[in-house]
Design a protein around this nucleic acid. Structure first.
Length: 875
RNA sequence: GGGGGCAUAGCUCAGUUGGUUAGAGCGCAUGCUUCACAUGCAUGAGGUCACAGGUUCGAGCCCUGUUGUCCCCACCA
């Protein structure tokens, strides 16, 4: 076996190891009916997108869970895939065409789609390769794409079923329209941002009177589509006008004044212009009063023929001219500054127009109810739980889902219209003739479906649904979905109601929600700010393991986290530590073959580290089961660095370098055993380096990722022995601190005198104590030193320590130290004493707590006496 | 308007069902070329757990209110 390199250098092995995992089919989930499945569906990134920090965290968390479960013996399937990202991808392709001087209309649908697929082929592999860099252990043989045959079939099936049940319908409704993407958007796809705008007060003349009615509007251009003015029914100011007609300026139309509860008499002038075609609320008012719907805007945001003289103008130009014209006519009463929220397209950020349009919708109310119930009944659990409230909030206030998009890249709506009889045909497969009249004049609906319609089916479409495949039968429902909170309304919610509707089961039992990865200053990473950090660059510099570990340490579930170089460096340093500790163990193990644990006699230090290992195994497993990845990582780092490296390795050195062959073999056995366990425990977090080190272990075969995850063994807990050994550690720490306190150089060995009842324990560990505490000798004494001796003293768990330091001792310093110690101990005694004097505490607190407190008090009193005695020596 | 998060060491953050003297990393101070590691070792300084009440034998944690801050939803035209 080759020697390990002296420093940790991830570049040497990360790519090689990933290749080996792939070549050996380590990620492949073979159905095994003797095993319990554990299924995770990867949230599919945009097929032509690039890896960012958000993905990196999302992927890391999933990989940790999947590797953990796989090692625990589950049949773990992590199914990867990509999303066609209808609007996002189409926007990109259109931009590209624009640069080449083309428009998509010029190319036509067929040619455009040909190019889109070519684009997908060109860039679709990029994100997949990037995911591999992270070490993701997903089953690439099952790689899915939302527009592949399997998923497309599921989309048609789902649409068909919903249509048959009357849960999908087509209708003219107010929808959010993006004039730039020229498509409808769902409510979730609109982002609101406050903008500084204006309030224009316009006077509308009352027909047959000199009176005018003043309304206020933020969008003057829509006045051309006004079909009424509404006032509150109880508003006395306007009561006499209700039912009268107004002359709508700039047009030759007259419109009625109607009374409607929707109007807030306190706001503006208390009179609202009603434009049913361009405002959701006005649309509702229009329905109540049977008002005509006059749409004055084209799909591209310009005014249409119904806008009369303003036809062809851009919406903002029209606004300007209308205001000017109204002013000329003397009908502009005033202009006020007004801040209001304006909706923007979540992809291109253009201002969205609410517009009446004929679109396809999913009827949400009947679907929302079971989706809410499933979470209420805990069939699906959110972690952290608070996100279930956000989920409820969305579903309880949900409106019908607009699923048609005026785009080409996506799943075309499986509906055909008969050119002869007008029949509307929804079918799974393309029909050849009209089932009603037999005509072959069929044209398919031009629109495609919202990207999220196919994503909603992801947990089961990828497993072959609607076919009753073996995969579907075995792996569905999935176990845990890992995703960010920003995507709950887009995706989580829709998978929930879709899963329940189509498969009768919740699509996943747990939803693990994480926060956003922010920049160093806490800002969201974004393209426009240019503050995004490329995970691939970080991997290049520090390795994937360091990146992974840094993304989960110090992070609480659901909370945002800041990404800093310092964090990655800390992780890298830890891995370097692990690397070197391993190197140390292996170097020593080489000379002497490490025996099995059962063949050796355990020393107190051995039992101590084994005990801590057991605690670590239990705590880490429990934390992972609760999705507390940050806590699990913390515990591991702490155990490896503090317990194993700083203590156990150092404690083992006297044995390793000593003459006693049995002790040497014993220490080696324990070092090897603990190291192997550490590697396994850490593997889900830092898979590459653990796999690499594992390959050097003489005792192991095969891949660590296929090894069994350590299990807690109560017979190895050694709680009593471990507790006793803490006394030795405390003694070493006490001696070290005493030396530092009196400025004794670390290189100077001191003679340690100890007054203790634990002589055996100390004797057994004498060599280690001498080495770690920097002592030349450890001797036992029955009493304290003579008065005035140049000795420093302190109390530790095992008893009292004296160190004669000759001329080096600064008696004044020692006295000051003792006085400080006395103060501390006295304070502690007072605190413990008053606690025990409290009858309520003694009566109501658990007995163990009270007993502990009593024992502590006794010890403190003893310690105080000792310190006082020493202080007397200085008088 | 509704909902939610956060407020703990100089900085970034953990803190399990309420229970010893509230933790980590980084930073800081002091000292270490100890044969795995200076990407390291040792020792240490540093906190009124935002504020005010309450529940409890006991509160960083539970309850009420206040302040500051961030986010989500709604959209009074």
């Amino acid at each position: 076996m080759e020697e390990m390199q002296t420093t940790y250098n991830p570049k040497e092995f990360e790519d090689r190891i990933y290749r080996e995992w792939m070549e050996n089919g380590c990620f492949r989930a073979e159905i095994d009916r003797d095993k319990v499945p554990f299924t995770v569906m990867m949230p599919p990134p945009n097929v032509t997108g690039q890896l960012h920090m958000g993905h990196a965290m999302d992927e890391t968390m999933q990989d940790i869970l999947v590797r953990f479960k796989r090692m625990q013996g589950y049949c773990a399937l992590w199914l990867p895939g990509t999303d066609h990202a209808s609007i996002a991808t189409e926007v990109k392709i259109v931009e590209r065409l624009k640069k080449e001087g083309h428009t998509k209309e010029e190319l036509g649908r067929e040619e455009f789609l040909r190019r889109a697929w070519a684009w997908k082929e060109k860039y679709g592999g990029r994100i997949v390769e990037q995911l591999k860099k992270l070490g993701s252990s997903c089953d690439w043989s099952r790689l899915a794409f939302t527009m592949d045959e399997k998923c497309s079939r599921a989309v048609r099936e789902a649409f068909f079923r919903l249509y048959q049940k009357g849960l999908i319908y087509r209708g003219s409704r107010i929808i959010n329209w993006c004039p730039s993407c020229k498509t409808a958007l769902s409510d979730a796809e609109v982002e609101y941002a406050e903008e500084q705008g204006h309030f224009w007060y316009f006077a509308y003349p009352v027909e047959g009177s000199d009176e005018t009615l003043v309304i206020a509007t933020t969008r003057p251009e829509t006045m051309l589509g006004d079909t009424a003015v509404a006032v509150h029914p109880g508003d006395k100011r306007y009561a006499h006008l209700v039912g009268k007609m107004l002359r709508l300026p700039l047009t030759d139309r007259t419109i009625p004044v109607v009374a409607d509860e929707y109007v807030d008499p306190e706001f503006g002038t208390g009179a609202v212009k009603i434009t049913p075609a361009h405002d959701p609320n006005d649309f509702e008012v229009g329905l109540r009063h049977n008002l005509p719907v006059i749409r004055v805007m084209n799909d591209d945001g310009t005014m249409n023929d119904l806008a009369g003289g303003y036809a062809g103008l851009d919406r903002y130009e029209a606004r300007k001219r209308i205001v000017e014209k109204m002013q000329q006519l003397g009908l502009l009463v005033k202009i006020e500054a007004h801040a209001h929220n304006v909706g923007h397209c979540y992809r291109c950020h253009s201002t969205v127009e609410p517009i009446v349009s004929k679109q396809w919708f999913v009827r949400m109310k009947p679907l929302a109810k079971p989706a809410i119930d499933a979470v209420v009944k805990k069939k699906t659990k959110f972690t952290p739980d608070r996100f279930s409230k956000i989920y409820y909030n969305w579903l309880e206030n949900i409106r019908d889902w607009c699923i048609s998009r005026q785009l080409w890249w996506g799943h075309r709506i499986p509906v055909w219209y008969c050119g002869d009889c007008g029949e509307v045909i929804c079918a799974r497969e393309t029909p050849s003739v009209c089932p009603k009249c037999g005509s072959a004049h069929l044209t398919q609906d031009e629109d495609v479906l919202d990207t999220w319609f196919s994503s909603a089916l992801w947990p089961f479409s990828t497993l072959g649904w609607p076919e009753e495949t073996e995969d579907f039968d075995y792996f569905y429902p999935t176990d845990v979905l890992v995703t960010g909170y920003d995507i709950i309304p887009f995706w989580v919610m829709r998978m929930m109601f879709s899963g329940i509707e189509h498969t009768d089961k919740v699509p996943f039992r747990d939803v693990l929600i994480h926060g956003l990865v922010r920049d160093e200053q806490g800002r969201k990473m974004s393209k426009s700010l240019g503050n995004g950090i490329d995970p691939l660059e970080v991997i290049d510099k520090y390795g994937a393991d360091s990146l992974r570990l840094s993304l989960v340490t110090g992070v609480a579930p659901g909370n945002d986290t800041r990404f800093t170089d310092a964090k990655v460096e800390a992780s890298r340093n830890f891995i370097n530590k692990l690397w070197n500790a391993s190197r140390f163990v292996l170097m020593n193990a080489k000379r002497e073959k490490a025996p099995a644990l059962s063949e050796i006699r355990l020393q107190p230090a051995d039992r101590w580290i084994i005990s801590h290992l057991q605690a670590c195994i239990r705590e880490v497993s429990a934390a992972l089961d609760k999705f507390d990845l940050g806590i699990a990582a913390d515990k591991l780092v702490d155990f490896v660095w503090n317990d194993f490296c700083d203590w156990y390795i150092e404690l083992s050195k006297p044995a390793l370098y000593g003459e006693d062959a049995d002790k040497k073999r014993g220490a080696l056995a324990v070092l090897m055993m603990v190291l192997e366990n550490i590697l396994k425990l850490l593997h889900p977090f830092i898979p590459y380096v653990t796999e690499e080190i594992y390959s050097y272990l003489p005792t192991t075969k095969g891949f660590i990722m296929k090894a069994d995850y350590p299990r807690y063994n109560s017979r190895l807990a050694y709680k009593k022995e471990a507790k006793a050994f803490e006394g030795v550690i405390d003694l070493i720490k006490t001696v070290r601190a005493m030396k530092v306190e009196v400025s004794c150089p670390p290189s100077r060995k001191v003679h340690v005198y100890l007054m203790t009842e634990s002589r055996r324990l100390v004797t057994v560990n004498k060599n280690a104590i001498m080495r770690l505490a920097g002592a030349s000798e450890v001797s036992f004494v029955d009493g304290g030193p003579e008065a005035g001796a140049k000795v420093v003293s302190n109390v530790c768990e095992l008893g009292q320590v004296f160190i004669p330091l000759g001329d080096l001792v600064d008696l004044e310093k020692e006295k000051a130290r003792l006085e400080k110690e006395l103060e501390r101990v006295t304070g502690e005694i007072a605190r413990a004493g008053s606690k025990l004097a409290n009858q309520n505490f003694v009566a109501k607190a658990p007995k163990k707590l009270v007993d502990d407190e009593r024992a502590k008090l006794e010890k403190l009193i003893d310690a105080k006496a000792k310190v006082e005695r020493r202080l007397k020596d200085f008088e």
